[in-house]
Nucleic acid binder design. Structure first.
Lengths: 339, 339
DNA sequence: CTGAAAGCGCTTACAG
DNA sequence: CTGAAAGCGCTTACAG
C-alpha cells in the first residue's frame, strides 16, 4: 500500500548516487545546476516527499512541540491554543495537542507519550488537582530528559521551568479596587476555583483590596451554595452591591439568577468577571471583564519555548507575567464624573 | 544536550547484544526471564525511552493522524476535536492538529505538511471557500499518496473519500416542519453561511418544508442586512412569527435585537437554531436547537479513519450521516395539546 | 536462549 | 562536481 518513492529509487531512475540526489534536493552548492534540475524535475513528477522520520532520526530534533491543556471549552484556552498553533507554525514547528480534562492521570500519560515521541519541548497548563496538591514529579522529570517545559496560565511554584501567566493576585486586587472606584462598597467574590493555586492567589488579592478599602470580606464558594437562594438572601439583606466572578459560566448563571430574582444589573448589582470570553461580549447585559490576552500569552509561551529549545536564552528561567487590563461593559456602573 | 540513552549503550553496559536488549524490552518469548529482568531493570534505572522516530522508520507507520479544522471557537468544533483526541488516544494514535481559520491557502500548506510528516490518515473539515468553489485538488491528491482521508461535517461532493456528517437538507426540513407543528406559520431562515455547500443544503431543505406547508419562503442573508432594522420591519409588518438561525452567534445577535425592540420570545417570535452550543443552554431565553452530536461524530470519524488505515473496511467508501434530534427549550412555543 | 547482520530513508563528512 | 560509506536508533529474519 505504501508506495511513496524514496531517494534511492529516485537515484536509480536518474543513474545518480543517493548522495547526489539528496544534495540536489537540498539545493547544495556542490551540485551542478543541470543535475539539480534533472533531479528536481523527476522528484516533482514522481511526487517525491522526504521522509521526516528519517530526517529527524539523523538530525536529532523533531521540530515538534507538545501542548497539554485541560480542555478547549473555555474561550481562554481555545484562543490560547489557536495562537500557539499559529506561532508554532510560523516558526516551523509542528504541535501535538493533548487535553487532560483535568485528569492528573491523563496528564501523566500525555507527558510520557510526548517523551516517547521525542518532542523538542512542552507547554503545559496543568490540571487543577495538581495545582491543589502539587504532585508534579512527572513534570520535574522532564528536565532529566532535557526537554524544556513552559508552564502556562496555571502556574505551579514547585516546578523549575519557564513560566508564562498573569499576576492573578494583583489582578484580583485591581479588579476589586476598580469596583470600589465605580462606587461599589460591598463586594463579594464568588469563587469557582477555590483551593487551586490561581484561586488562592485571587482570593489573596481580593482580600488585600478589601482590607485597603476597609470593606467586609465575602468569599463565596460557588460550588457549595444554592445560587439563587444565596443571591436572594445576600441582595435582599443588602449585604452586597457587586460581585466578582471567576469564569464565564458562573457569571452567566449568576446573571440569570439575579435577573430572575427581579433585580437589575448594574443598578442593583454590579458584575465583573475574570474571563473576557465571547459570553462577556454578547450576554445581556454585557459583562465587564479582565482581558487576559490569551492570544498574546499563547504566542509568548511558544516563543519562549522555542527560544529555549534553540538555546537563544540565558540559562536563568523566565517568569513572565503579562500586564492585563479591564474591559468595562454594561454590567458595572458608570463612574459618576466628579465636578 | 540530548543525552537520552540508546539501546546500544544499554547493551554495552549489560554486555549483551543490541538484538537481545531490544527483544527483552519488547518482551519477546525468545529471551530468558533472567536476562529480561536484568535488561528492564537497567532500562528503568537509566530511564531508557525508545526512539519513536527509529521505530516508525522501520515500521512504516507513524500511528499519527492529522486533523484539520477551521477553528475551535464554535462549541461544535471544540467538542468534536476533543472527542477525536480522546478516541485517537484510546486506539493508540497520536494526532497533529491544525487550524485553517477558513483560509484555503493555510489548508493546502497543512495538507502538504501532513504528507511530509507521513501521517497515517487525515480528518478534515474544509474551509468555507473550498466548499463554495470546490477547488479540492490538494485533497484529491492524498489518494495518490495512499493517505486515507475522512471528510468531516463540511462535506464536499467532489472528493472521493469516507465522509461523516449530517443530512443538512433533511435536518433543515425537519426543523422547519417542527416550527410549523408548534404553530408557526411565517418562518424565516436567517442564513449565516449561504453559498457554502452546507448552507445550500439547508436552504434546499427549508424550501422543501415551506413548499409542503404552503408557506412563503423568506431567506435572509445574515451578512447583507442591518439586523435590527430588518427585524423591526419584518416583525412590525407581521411578516414573520419565527426564525431559523444557523449558528449560536447569529442567534445571540438576533435574540438581543428582538428583545431590544421590545418583542418577546417565544410569544412574539419563536427561535430555533442549528447549533446546540453552550449558548443555547444558557442564554435567556434558552434556545431550541438541533443537537448535532459533535462528540459522536468526532468519535465515528476517528473510528472510520483508523479502520480504513488498518484495512478493516471493505473498499467501498462510507458516507455516514448521523441521525440527530431537536432539543426544545424556551425559545419556541409549547405545543398546545389538542383535545 | 543469544547475537551478527541487514535495512528502514535520510544526511554528511570524506575521497576522488 | 559526483559518489561510496558511515551512521541516526531501532526491529527482525536468520544463524548458531
Amino acid at each position: 500500500m505504501e508506495t511513496r518513492i524514496t531517494l534511492k529509487e529516485l537515484a536509480a531512475s536518474l543513474n545518480l548516487s543517493v548522495s547526489t540526489v539528496s544534495k540536489s534536493l537540498n539545493d547544495s552548492t556542490e551540485i551542478s545546476p543541470i543535475t539539480k534540475r534533472r533531479v528536481t524535475e523527476l522528484a516533482t513528477l514522481k511526487r517525491y516527499v522526504p521522509n521526516n522520520m528519517a530526517q529527524n532520526l539523523r538530525g536529532k530534533k523533531t521540530k515538534t512541540l507538545g501542548i497539554i491543556i485541560p480542555n478547549i471549552f473555555s474561550d481562554f484556552f481555545a484562543e490560547a491554543l489557536s495562537s500557539m498553533e499559529e506561532q508554532s507554525d510560523k516558526r516551523g514547528y509542528n504541535i501535538i495537542i493533548s487535553f487532560t480534562n483535568d485528569s492528573l492521570e491523563k496528564e501523566i500519560e500525555c507527558i510520557n507519550k510526548l517523551i516517547h515521541r521525542r518532542v523538542d519541548g512542552i507547554i503545559i497548563s496543568p490540571t487543577l488537582t495538581e495545582s491543589q496538591f502539587g504532585s508534579s514529579t512527572h513534570l520535574n522529570k522532564l528536565s532529566e530528559y532535557n526537554i524544556p517545559l513552559v508552564l502556562f496560565d496555571r502556574i505551579l511554584d514547585n516546578v523549575a521551568c519557564d513560566k508564562v501567566g498573569l499576576n492573578e493576585s494583583l489582578l484580583a486586587e485591581e479588579a476589586t479596587l476598580d469596583l470600589c472606584k465605580l462606587g461599589c462598597k460591598k463586594i463579594a467574590y464568588f469563587s469557582n476555583i477555590s483551593n487551586t493555586s490561581i484561586g488562592n492567589q485571587r482570593i489573596s488579592g481580593y482580600s488585600d483590596a478589601i482590607k485597603k478599602i476597609k470593606g467586609k470580606k465575602q468569599i463565596i464558594n460557588f460550588h457549595k451554595i444554592d445560587l439563587k437562594i444565596s443571591l436572594k438572601h445576600l441582595i435582599g439583606t443588602n449585604s452586597i452591591d457587586s460581585i466578582l466572578a471567576d469564569d464565564g459560566l458562573s457569571s452567566i448563571l449568576i446573571v440569570k439568577s439575579i435577573l430572575e430574582l427581579g433585580y437589575r444589573i448594574p443598578e442593583d448589582i454590579s458584575m465583573l468577571n475574570f474571563s473576557n470570553g465571547i459570553f462577556s461580549h454578547y450576554l445581556s447585559p454585557s459583562l465587564t471583564a479582565i482581558d487576559s490576552k490569551p492570544i498574546e500569552q499563547g504566542k509568548i509561551a511558544v516563543d519562549i519555548l522555542i527560544d529555549r529549545i534553540e538555546d537563544r536564552l540565558s540559562p536563568e528561567l523566565l517568569d513572565f507575567r503579562l500586564e492585563v487590563s479591564l474591559v468595562h461593559r454594561e454590567s458595572t456602573r458608570r463612574l459618576v464624573p466628579s465636578i
